[in-house]
Amino acid sequence: MERGYKKIFWALFFVTFHLNIGSLQLLPPFMGWLILLSGLQELTSALQNSSISTASFERGRTSGRILVGLTLLGTLGSLGTGGDWMEAPVMTFYPIIIIGLEIITFFYILEGTHEIFSALGFNERKEESEGKLRTYLLMVIPSGVLLTFALFFNHSFSMVIGVLLGLIAVIYLLVFIHQVKKFWMENPLENPVLEKRETLFSGTE
């Protein structure tokens, strides 16, 4: 579990903060989304023999795959045209489509996390993850709306506010994913068959 969340953490970090050497992007966004898919694969594998549903993570993987495809297209297109195609009218809202899919993906990741805590009876953690997801959504959706407006009207002020709000939402999410990772590091799932939580996680709450 810990490895899965660790990968998701770094995936979100790399797709948000681009590391460049000169004009060369070290890790293009599609690589970040591939890391996320790998992280989700780890989570579903860790839960495969349990009775805990992995449906949310599976949905997250579906939207994650679309993100890999779209960002790969974006990277190839930019390489092929020297970035010019991002100026094409058809690409106007490409970033918003990516943001929309990102919101859906992380919704399912947090919903899956919530389901694990719920199934294992970690009520405090369960409620926390629900609250964190709500806060994230209430920041990232207005950010998406503002950015859509900003991209259409080339409105700098809305762009700055939208980006800042989105950035705060992502940092908030990163902190939460880090906390979940830390939780599973301190409380490893030794036996994937989770029948009696008390036996496996005694005294962890």
Partner: peptide, 16 residues
């Protein structure tokens, strides 16, 4: 949360 997501995604999709 599901309702917020649904409303938010519909709103963004309509705007797009």
């Amino acid at each position: 949360n599901g309702k917020i997501l649904k409303a938010g995604i519909i709103l963004i999709a309509v705007l797009v």
